[in-house]
Design a protein around this nucleic acid. Structure first.
Length: 483
RNA sequence: GGUCCCAUCGUCUAGUGGCCUAGGACAUCACCCUCUCAAGGUGGAGGCACGGGUUCGAAUCCCGUUGGGACUGCCA
């Protein structure tokens, strides 16, 4: 018995959807559970009107970012068009298909209350020949039921009489999704079809095609097992829409989510590892994942939880790893991949790798996503801090005590022999005792003068790394700024 | 409209007839820690949609109701 052969078959009609990412992941996890499992990527690019080559590239890069490695492929459905055509011809020769020249308007007109939806079979026995107006339809059985043995949901029954004679090939001759997909799955010897729930209604049709193809050939291929994953929905409980929902995986990468955290979160949508721990290594995901345990109900993609989880992953990094991971946001000029529209405020000349190495541990525990780093460290690299004017007004411009504090700090910092965090801290502590303020209050004007804002990394370490010269210069220019 | 799917805290889930006084995580609230902000710690509030069965016993099984969703293309 060989391992499962699964495929992820997206169509390149837009950004790489987070729902697609989860489908790909679940397929991949199943393949990774056995040493001989096979994960295939097949780009279903047979809709010339909507497909774009850049979306194909987007699929490749997102998959590689997520670490969803391929065992075969990537394949392009468009490379297999000849096989789709011969499958259609084979079925037609064996009587499974018939030509139909009805226009959608005509089909609509014949529809009435009480009649089953979809095509009414008007051309079934008209014996039409192929021409430029005829599509090929599948002769659906009028009786019986088709049951889909779904690994996630159990058996789902469809009454054959209610399945209309669907179109298999366009009047232009090109084969449509249902058959193209089945033909490729047979060709690739797919054993498990794992896809979104929106495909559940396609399953009985595809099973019929699959079996018809088996009847018509001398080398039948066993039907695959099906697994339809619950939908990913938005807050309105509607299927995530590419238009209005933040669903582009690329966007999460741009914002600085770690692929490990993203994969971990994705795995939690419709499934969960044993025990109370949700943050688990990939190896645990692979070991424990079972299609049978996948939830039946739709899941809401909760960015807040993703974000929290990412913060945990960020803090779990070693400082070296953190520095490396943050490169696209802090020194994009040195990386081959950089997030779009997220250039830091500083230039390559202003940046100091040595300084960033010191500062990194301070920010690592304060950011949830990597794109938050630049704003937190920019005062280290810019010649002058960028001031938050409201804060500046509050603790410096409108506060004489604040300015006195800064003056005293300048005086004592100039004389300080050991320029390091502890004595820097001690001096401000003394200052605050002298004016009768809590340290939390007394540090505010100094922080604002040096960093431009009231929130940021620990102040005294920051002053140490910034150096005496730059610190005192900033304290002075903050005072000068008031006049 | 038809077909199909689904239903545990606001959200993601654990739970497969007694271990449930329903567990965890995010979010939220309070307190603690604290040079700001985070992080961390402690604690709180918060849920089995409803109604019938079955059973000694139901979040768990069955039926119905209600509510949500998907599909219903010569797209994939």
């Amino acid at each position: 018995m060989s391992g499962p052969r699964v495929r992820f078959a997206p169509s390149p009609t837009g950004y790489f959807h987070v729902g697609s990412a989860r489908t790909a992941l679940f397929n991949w996890l199943l393949a990774r559970q056995t040493s001989d499992g096979v994960f295939i990527l097949r780009v279903e690019d047979t809709d010339a009107t909507r497909d774009r080559e850049e979306w194909v590239e987007g699929i490749y890069s997102a998959m590689s970012w997520l670490g969803l490695t391929l065992d075969e492929g990537p394949f392009r459905q468009s490379d297999n068009i000849a096989a789709h055509d011969s499958a259609a011809q084979l079925l037609r020769r064996n009587g499974y298909l018939y030509y139909c020249d009805c226009t959608p308007a005509q089909v609509d007109e014949r529809k009435g209350p009480g009649k089953p939806p979809g095509y009414d079979g008007f051309c079934r026995d008209r014996g039409l020949e192929r021409d430029t107006t005829t599509a090929l339809r599948f002769r659906t059985p009028r009786e019986g039921v088709t049951v889909v043995h779904d690994l996630v949901r159990g058996d789902v029954e469809f009454e054959n009489a209610l399945i209309d004679d669907f179109v298999v090939a366009r009047s232009s001759g090109t084969v449509l999704y249902a058959l193209a997909n089945v033909t490729d799955d047979r060709h690739d010897r797919i054993t498990h079809v794992i896809r979104g729930e929106e495909h559940l209604a396609n399953a009985p049709k595809q099973m019929m095609l699959w079996e018809a193809l088996n009847q018509a050939t001398r080398s039948p291929v066993p039907l695959p097992l099906y697994a339809h994953l619950p939908l990913l929905v938005n807050e309105q409980r509607k299927k995530l829409s590419k238009r209005k929902d933040p669903v582009a995986t690329e966007m999460y990468r741009d914002e600085g989510y770690l692929p490990s955290a993203f994969v971990n979160y994705l795995a939690l949508l419709g499934w969960s590892p044993r025990g109370d721990e949700e943050i688990v290594p990939l190896s645990t995901l692979i070991e424990q994942f079972r299609l049978e345990d996948v939830s039946h109900s739709p899941a809401f993609f909760d960015v807040k939880k993703l974000r929290h989880m990412n913060g945990e992953y960020v803090r779990a990094l070693s400082v070296d790893e953190f520095i490396r991971a943050s490169a696209p946001w802090v020194r994009p000029w040195s990386t081959d991949w950089r997030p779009s529209d997220r250039e830091p405020a500083w230039s390559e000349d202003q940046f100091s790798a040595a300084l960033y190495t010191k500062v990194a541990p301070l920010v690592q525990e304060r950011v949830a996503i990597l794109s938050e780093i630049p704003a937190m460290v920019e005062f280290f690299f810019l010649d002058e801090p960028r001031f938050d004017e409201a804060s500046f007004a509050k603790v410096i411009a409108n506060d004489p005590v604040g300015r006195t504090l800064i003056e005293s700090a300048i005086e004592r910092y100039e004389r300080l022999s050991d320029w390091s965090a502890a004595p820097l801290h001690e001096i401000v502590q003394q200052l605050s005792d002298e004016v009768g303020l809590a340290l939390r209050k007394a540090q505010a004007p100094i922080r604002c003068a040096v960093t431009g804002t009231l929130v940021g990394p620990p102040l005294f370490e920051s002053l140490e790394y910034l150096g005496r010269k730059r610190t005192i210069q900033r304290l002075r220019s903050a005072l000068a700024r008031v006049g």
